[in-house]
Lab assay of single mutants.
Amino acid sequence: KYTPEEIEKLKELRIKHGNDWATIGAALGRSASSVKDRCR
Rank of each mutant, 00 (worst) to 15 (best):
R30T: 09
G18R: 07
G18E: 08
K16E: 10
V35H: 02
V35E: 09
S33M: 06
E5W: 01
N19F: 04
K36M: 15
G29R: 04
S31D: 12
W21K: 05
A32P: 12
A32Q: 07
E6G: 01
P4E: 13
H17I: 00
H17N: 03
N19R: 07
I15L: 13
V35N: 02
R14I: 10
K36W: 06
K11L: 10
C39P: 03
K16R: 14
G18L: 02
G29F: 00
C39M: 10
I7P: 05
E12N: 15
E5C: 00
S31P: 11
S31W: 01
K1Y: 11
K11A: 12
E12S: 13
H17G: 02
T23L: 11
C39L: 08
E6R: 01
I24M: 07
S34F: 00
E5N: 07
D37F: 02
Y2M: 13
K9D: 09
V35C: 08
R30V: 09
D20P: 01
E12G: 11
A26F: 05
G29V: 00
R40V: 15
K16A: 13
A32K: 03
K1W: 00
A27D: 05
S34L: 03
K16S: 07
I7V: 12
E12K: 13
R38D: 14
A27T: 10
A27W: 01
C39Y: 09
T3G: 00
A32S: 07
D20M: 03
E8C: 08
S34N: 09
K36Y: 08
A22Y: 02
K16T: 14
T3I: 01
D20Y: 00
R40G: 15
H17V: 01
A27Y: 03
K9M: 14
E8F: 07
R40D: 15
D20E: 05
I7G: 05
K9L: 11
N19W: 02
D20R: 00
R40I: 13
V35L: 03
C39T: 08
E12F: 08
A22E: 08
E8L: 11
A27Q: 12
Y2H: 07
E8D: 12
G29W: 00
V35I: 06
R40E: 15
V35M: 01
L28H: 02
S31V: 03
Y2C: 02
R14D: 01
N19T: 14
L10E: 02
I15D: 13
R14T: 10
D37Q: 15
E5P: 00
R14F: 09
G18I: 00
P4D: 11
K1M: 11
R14L: 13
T23Y: 04
S34Q: 11
G18Q: 08
E6Y: 02
E6V: 02
S31E: 11
R30F: 02
G18T: 04
A26C: 07
D37N: 10
L10D: 03
L13E: 02
H17F: 08
H17R: 01
K1L: 07
L13R: 01
L10P: 06
R14K: 10
I24W: 00
A22P: 11
K16G: 05
R30A: 07
S31F: 02
I24T: 05
I7S: 09
K16D: 09
R40Y: 12
G18S: 05
V35P: 02
A32W: 03
G29C: 04
K11I: 09
R30E: 14
A27L: 11
S33P: 08
A22L: 10
I15F: 15
E5I: 05
R38I: 12
A22Q: 12
K11F: 06
R30P: 05
G18N: 09
E12Y: 05
E6M: 05
R40C: 14
T3D: 02
K1N: 15
C39W: 13
A26I: 04
A26W: 02
K11Y: 08
S33W: 10
A26S: 11
D20Q: 07
S33E: 15
A22G: 08
L10I: 13
R38Q: 15
E5G: 11
T3L: 04
R38W: 13
R40P: 09
K16W: 03
Y2W: 14
K16I: 04
R14S: 10
S31I: 00
W21C: 03
E5K: 00
I15H: 14
A22V: 12
R30H: 11
G25T: 02
E5L: 09
D37S: 14
K1D: 15
G29N: 11
K16Y: 04
S31C: 09
A27I: 09
K16P: 03
I7Q: 11
E12I: 12
H17M: 04
A32N: 01
C39S: 11
K11V: 11
E8W: 03
G18K: 09
S34W: 09
A22C: 06
K16C: 11
S31K: 03
L10K: 03
K11M: 04
S33H: 11
R38E: 15
W21S: 09
C39I: 05
T23M: 11
Y2V: 11
P4L: 12
E12T: 12
T23G: 08
I15S: 12
N19H: 12
A22M: 07
I15N: 15
A22I: 12
L10V: 07
E12D: 12
E12H: 10
R38M: 14
E6Q: 08
N19D: 15
A26P: 05
A26N: 10
G29A: 03
S33D: 14
W21T: 07
S31R: 01
L13T: 09
L13G: 04
W21E: 11
R38P: 06
L28T: 04
I7D: 15
P4R: 12
E8M: 10
D20I: 02
G25K: 01
W21D: 08
E5S: 10
